[in-house]
């Protein structure tokens, strides 16, 4: 049994977080979320549609047991819009979680570090559990931790790119130095990518496109859950060092033992 993940006051039973976009229908989305075993799902505020049940993503999610909802601010171009969206999201869901994402460019969807930092300050003061989606920048991650964010969510590669973890060394530094949970968000294509992230010691991964765009999203969700479990278990078990092969000779240090140089 792996160690439990806790974000602020909430213990979460799974280290796989899922998104809700890009699914072919709500039924598939719900089945997939259930199959993934996730305890935290994020949903874009712009996809809340209280006047139209058929078009509303939030309604069916709110009925799921043991799944916490994390509204996200996708669509916000700056701190002010993100804060407005977060406030509205909390009003509608009563969830303390907020996935803070500010991507001014609607095409590559890369996060704006400056606006994200400004919005995080305000939202933390307003009592949110702020989960910012950020570039994999170890300094920014610490700055966000310092102001009270609940976690940091560095990207592995651009959203929807399926490139896996392209910024491995940056993620490693973030994990090493962070005192709050680190969640790799975006870029993960396969369960092996997710496992690789978990083996590095990240606390959770957030996967959307790779599941929703799979031929069989429900089956892929199960595969991701296994990948995340395996990766985490491997991390906790302690991976063998890469350089454990015996070193037969010590040409540079043999003199220390009185040998000839």
């Amino acid at each position: 049994m792996s160690q439990m993940l806790k974000i602020k006051d909430q213990v979460l039973g799974s280290r796989l977080f899922t998104g809700t976009g890009k699914f072919s229908d709500t039924e598939t989305m719900v089945k997939t979320i259930k199959a993934s075993g996730t305890a935290l799902v994020t949903v874009a505020l712009r996809r809340f549609h209280k006047d139209s049940a058929a078009d509303d993503l939030y309604g069916p999610l709110s009925e799921l047991d043991n799944v916490h909802i994390m509204p996200n601010t996708s669509g916000a171009m700056n701190a002010r819009e993100a804060v407005n969206a977060a406030m509205l999201g909390r009003e509608l869901t009563e969830s303390p979680f907020i996935k803070l994402e500010i991507h001014p460019n609607p095409h590559h969807l890369l996060p704006d570090a400056i606006e994200t930092y400004e919005a995080a300050k305000i939202l933390v003061a307003e009592g949110f559990w702020v989960m910012p989606y950020i570039p994999a920048d170890p300094v920014l991650a610490k700055r966000l931790e310092d102001i009270g964010c609940a976690s940091v969510m560095p990207l592995g590669s651009p959203i929807g790119s399926g490139q896996g973890i392209e910024v491995r060394e940056m993620i490693r530094l973030i994990v090493r130095d962070s005192s709050i949970p680190v969640v790799v968000d975006a870029g993960i294509r396969s369960p092996s990518d997710a496992a690789a992230a978990m083996e590095m010691g990240v606390d959770a991964v957030l996967v959307n496109s790779a599941i929703a765009a799979a031929e069989n999203p429900e089956a892929m969700a199960i595969a991701f859950a296994m990948g995340v479990e395996a990766g985490r278990a491997a991390y906790e078990a302690g991976l063998m060092s890469r350089s454990r092969e015996a070193v037969h000779t010590s040409p540079l240090t043999s003199f220390l033992a009185g040998g000839s140089v």
Partner: peptide
């Protein structure tokens, strides 16, 4: 065809002029 019709993919909260 396994495609979801999306009617709402925006929110008035993202219009300029709104204040927090």
């Amino acid at each position: 065809k396994d495609l979801e019709p999306v009617f709402k993919n925006w929110d008035t909260v993202y219009r300029d002029g709104a204040e927090y």
